[in-house]
Nucleic acid binder design. Structure first.
Lengths: 348, 348
DNA sequence: CTTTAGCACTCAGGGGAATTGAGTGCTAAC
DNA sequence: GTTAGCACTCAATTCCCCTGAGTGCTAAAG
């Protein structure tokens, strides 16, 4: 059954009041806030209905009303006015994103910190690839007889390199052969296929070359796996301590531990540009008393990033959602601009 | 004036009791803990003396005694029994250090987390170079006409690389010239010298080559500067919330903000293998009510790392110090083993 | 049928007084 | 120098009362 307009109006007032004050809100202040058109008694009748229908809760008789998760849900679905960010704010957000984007996880943690400081709640970020990464091209640069540099370009056009120490001396002349072998047989393959193929060529090449080859491949496998691992970075957990609902050090500690140690279970929805999870809608027990807002942004063609914010159920959904999508847009634009053009396989 | 042996014994008992319980300790429990040889009244007399001499403090008449910073100082200097780690523990520490050390800051944060979880206090880590980093060798790998890969080996033998998008097409034949130029003129130079030299060669080479050159150099400068920047990583700030002295959310928040936002002012002594700073001995105001234990370890020849632990003044100095030096040793060994041999300048 | 005014009732939170108990300082005896 | 005894202090705890915000209900007004 639908709520009357007035009930909705009241619910909205209650929620917004509660978001501000974190105190149960009473009939009188509601009446005042609604312009004094109706008396507090009327409001009380309406409130009783709203409690009955589960949109509000009462900590105890003779306390004001507090929104229930169901109430919040209705609020974010229908009542909440989508906030528009001011130009100044958008500007600030974009400024705070002017970061070097060399290391992916630097970006994550920096952007996370920025988000958190904008919304005053803890934030988390992650990037998930849509395809498995493969190597696109190899290069070996001799340094001396016992070491050389491996350079690997990955399918997302990022480049990794490292100095490789060799167990035994290798003839410089043989490097080109090896590079050809690498580029011929090991590009476009998933890490596990790589190890596979390494076995296959084992007998066809001289042992000392094979040693170098397998060192290179193991480096490649490691790097690819590391690069495609979904990493979750959290920031600003300390913001929790500012909130009255976490004045209790134990609760704060619990949630902080969850956010720093069990980040894997933070919500990472894979659809839609923005998702709001309210209290018990969260799967993780640790989040049952908190709400989470998650937005996604695009990186290139086949990667997707997520930014999430964790806060009390009474968090200011409208403003968090607005800022979060501001960041998501900013990031999408940032990556869209600087990132490599679509695809252009240079594989030979 | 020296303290009598008995006074020292009493001081030690008081401190160790207080470390355990965080409660002022009274004469009776001291008497009990000392084997009942003396009565609590005697202890009281001694305690009065110790207060007089500034080794102990009394929150108010009729509370037990609490160690003063001066008392802790004497304790760590003389009374504390240097704890030896059990073999099992050393083993555990070394295990927790079996990490990939590709990215320096990954190591830092991982080791920081490990330390923190071992001592149950927040930890921080940093690495400071003793020399400025320079480039040791350059390489350019063509990808297509509008992009190539820069590979740079730095003076500490780490290798950095990145894909470079070019504003205009470059003739492949010219790359070798460029590489020679890079290796001839820009190796061994500090980042600022590099920019300098770039100016000098400006007129001597064709413009489109110069464009590529300056892109490369700017990448090199950035990477070198980033790599030589001292970075401080903190971990486990949440541990603070477990401590009774930080039950107050405001205090906890203050210290956490300090540790995450103003890390630069965390103590980074540059001498000795281990340093203990007690309460007011810290320069930063934010640390006046906490103690800090810092140990250092060596990375290769010209880098030095620091691990620090922040805790309440009543922290368990003996065990923290022991574990910390366990970690320091572990890290020194780890780097000593895997790290590149001393020096071997391949600069041409 | 809805709204309002009036009134008795409930209950968390705050302030103050009383109580408790750990621990002290002092003194006098051993 | 050490100990027992005793009066004293003071934080912390408990209890109680009070206050006030806010409710639910009823009866009257619209």
């Amino acid at each position: 059954m639908e709520l009357t307009d007035r009930k909705k109006k009241i619910l909205k007032v209650v929620i917004e009041d509660y978001i501000r004050t974190a105190e149960p809100v009473g009939s009188k202040s509601i009446a005042a806030e609604m312009g004094g058109k109706v008396s507090s008694a009327t409001i009380r009748n309406e409130l009783a209905d709203l409690v009955e229908q589960g949109y509000l809760e009462q900590p105890h008789t003779s306390a004001g009303r507090v929104p229930s998760p169901k109430g919040y849900r209705l609020y974010v679905n229908e009542l909440m006015e989508r906030q528009r960010l001011s130009l100044a704010e958008t500007e600030k957000i974009n400024q705070s994103l002017q970061m070097k984007m060399e290391e992916l996880d630097h970006i994550l943690s920096q952007a996370g910190r920025a988000v958190s400081s904008f919304v005053n709640y803890p934030a988390y970020m992650s990037v998930t690839g849509r395809k498995t990464l493969t190597a696109k091209r190899f290069e070996l640069l001799p340094v001396d007889e016992r070491s050389c540099i491996v350079v690997m370009m990955m399918s997302d056009d990022r480049v990794k390199s490292q100095l490789l120490r060799l167990q035994l001396k290798v003839d410089l002349d043989q490097l080109p052969t090896l590079v050809n072998l690498l580029n011929g047989h090991f590009t476009g393959a998933s890490p596990s296929e790589m190890s596979q193929r390494l076995m296959n060529v084992a007998e066809q090449i001289p042992p000392q070359l094979f040693l170098l080859l397998s060192q290179t491949i193991s480096y490649a496998v490691d790097s690819l796996e590391e690069a495609s691992q979904r990493e979750i970075v959290t920031a600003g957990t300390k913001e929790l301590l500012k909130l009255p609902e976490f004045r209790d050090a134990d609760k704060a500690h619990q949630l902080m531990s969850f956010m720093t140690d069990s980040k894997e279970s933070l919500p990472l929805p894979d659809d839609g540009p923005m998702k709001i999870l309210i209290g018990p809608e969260n799967v993780s027990d640790a989040l049952k008393n908190t709400s989470v807002v998650v937005a996604s942004y695009d990186i290139g063609d086949d990667m997707r990033g997520l930014i999430g914010v964790v806060g009390p159920t009474r968090m200011d959904y409208a403003s968090v959602a607005a800022r979060l999508s501001g960041f998501a847009d900013g990031l999408t634009r940032l990556f869209g601009k600087q990132e490599l053009p679509p695809k252009e396989d240079t594989k030979e």
